[in-house]
Amino acid sequence: MAKNSKQKVLDAIYIAVAQVNELRPSDSQLECVESELVLGESSKLDSLGFVTLMVGIEQAVKDGFGSCPSLAIELTKQETSVKDIGDLATFITDTLD
C-alpha cells in the first residue's frame, strides 16, 4: 500500500516540479528524480521557489488524495530530515497513511 501510494505522491510532486520549471531558466531546471534536493544550501531553490513548489505539491496531492499537510509550514517549523524529493514523497506518504 505504502509503496503504491509513494509512487502516486511522486507523480503528484513531478506535476508541481513541471509547473515550477516553467518559471526557471533552462540551466537550473529541477529534475524529476528522487535525489533532486529541495531543502538545504545545495538545493537549486530559493525561498520563493521552495514555497511555490510546496504549494504546488500540496495542490497536486490534494487533487489525487483529497488532503495534504501544509508542507511549507511543516517542513520549516521544525528540524526535518527531508532533503530531497524522495524524502518528501516519504514524508507525505507517511502523513497520508
Binding site: Q19, E22, S47, V51, T52, V55, G56, E58, S70, A72
Partner: peptide, 19 residues
C-alpha cells in the same frame, strides 16, 4: 486567489493566473 501563496510569499494568485 491563493491564500497560501499570499501569506507565505505575498503572491495573491495561483500560478495559472500569472501564466
Amino acid at each position: 486567489i491563493s491564500s497560501q501563496m499570499w501569506y507565505l510569499a505575498k503572491v495573491p494568485f495561483e500560478l495559472g493566473v500569472l501564466r
